[in-house]
Design a protein around this nucleic acid. Structure first.
Lengths: 258, 258
DNA sequence: TCGTAGTGTTGCGCTATGAGCAACAGCGAA
DNA sequence: TTCGCTGTTGCTCATAGCGCAACACTACGA
């Protein structure tokens, strides 16, 4: 594939040339295995200094690596890592789907799966509850770990998470003291589930339980959330039991054996 | 990660900004799952039209896909494909290594593993023979299928390969008639191995055998090559038997069961 | 049902970036 | 030791990539 082929996207500047070239380099390396800069340049139809800089940019980010000090290049572990992130999330989302659908039906509220990233909970899957008022889609959203049930559960099982003090307030009920939050995390580890009461949004309650991976570590959380007039404080134990059970099923499906 | 962090590579323009941004987008999508353009732009620290164009460039190449007609983006199957190419070749190279070392010892010549790509044979692994005169590294090299033993074996087991007529000549011995080559391919399928006699380089002979994948199709070839005064015509049956045996072992290791 | 807010997408002009050229460093083979 | 080739770097300049403004579309709330 030459540049003239890349440019034939439909007139004008239809793409980002450098990105196209970089992706082509990844494909060349995928096909050819270990390849030198000059060979990449020849196949790409660019100057070898251009090829070198593009390869170096990919190398810097781990998508390409050099075989030895000086010489041929090959695809790096960064590709595997990206692919792994994709398939791991796909696996988790797929394996948990039917369990989440059942939970949403049983609990009557919206159910979400979240993973931890840089002290944020990121939702990767959602099943809307039958009585859901709002159609808000949480998937892809990052939420603060100290003000969400999933977030609390995720950090409760982390090694010594670094917490700000004070934490950010979202409602009058938000826990802003790191000490108070640590106390709640201790309770979560003892009870096996966590919850929030109008801590992220006024009128919004949530309960969450930990999902474990094949090493036993907590890799995700499943939660149910709803309006506080429906998901009342006295319903929490019942909802928690359902979530803990569902979380165990999901854990077993993704390879956790106790 | 903001651009200012990207720029802190060591003064000046140390990288390719657009490629760095594109890779960061892939990492964002790996972490967050389904994500909108505006969210990507915010996290990347660029204008949303910039983010949109970068995402579109990745989408065009299959590394990113859109979830639905209009909306959030996620990592695409292109990442899996790249990762698969990497791990498949790694698997093949790894599983064949000890067999190739033994073959190099037994035959006394350089042994290579090659795969087919666009009517070229690409070497992905090499073990130098003990009596090797030249240290030439074939890994990553593309060689013409009609003038190499691996190439002939690889196309012999393809569905109706398209051949030029005449083919390119490299030495006085090169087969340049497509009809003559097809005849040789028929013989290869019957015998189970192929060879070349000074067809790529004067003084260079080679023998190759097919490696099969789990569906039985030929996915690679293992070959031995050496100077014609050592790898003589009368040695071919003996060398072929060793290569066929070795190829079967490799095939079994990568999942082929007869 | 309609208006509004927000997101995704596109055209355009400008400038900062990416590219090619020339040259250098290093390595392996003759 | 010399030569050929590859990988790498500094520099200059043209253009590709970027941000801005605007548009199209969708979803939500009144």
């Amino acid at each position: 594939m030459s540049n003239s082929e890349l440019d034939s996207d439909g007139g004008g500047r239809a793409s980002v040339q450098s990105v196209d070239r970089a992706v082509t380099i990844l494909e060349i390396l995928a096909r050819r295995g270990e390849t030198g800069v000059t060979e990449v340049a020849t196949e790409l139809g660019v100057h070898k200094s251009t090829a070198f800089r593009l390869v170096a940019a990919l190398e810097r980010r781990g998508l390409v690596e050099q075989a030895g000090d000086r010489g041929k290049y090959r695809l790096g572990f960064g590709i595997i890592r990206l692919a792994g992130a994709t398939t791991a999330q796909l696996d988790l989302a797929r394996e948990s789907r039917t369990v989440c659908e059942r939970l949403a039906q049983e609990i009557g509220e919206t159910v979400n799966i979240a993973i931890l990233e840089d002290l944020h909970a990121i939702n990767i899957s959602q099943v809307r509850g039958p009585a859901a008022i709002t159609g808000y889609n949480w998937v892809g959203q990052r939420t603060p770990v100290h003000a969400t049930s999933s977030g609390k559960v995720l950090i409760a099982f982390q090694m010594d998470p670094t917490l700000c003090d004070p934490l950010e307030r979202y409602t009058p009920e938000t826990i802003v003291s790191a000490a108070a939050l640590r106390g709640q995390l201790d309770e979560i580890r003892l009870r096996g589930y966590g919850f929030t009461l109008e801590e992220l949004e006024v009128g919004l309650n949530a309960v969450a339980a930990p999902i474990r991976g094949d090493g036993g570590s907590v890799v995700a959380a499943v939660s149910a959330s709803g309006p506080s007039y429906r998901l009342t404080t006295d319903r929490i134990p019942e909802v928690a039991a359902l979530l803990v059970s569902g979380a165990r099923q999901i854990s077993e499906r993704i390879g956790f054996y106790q």
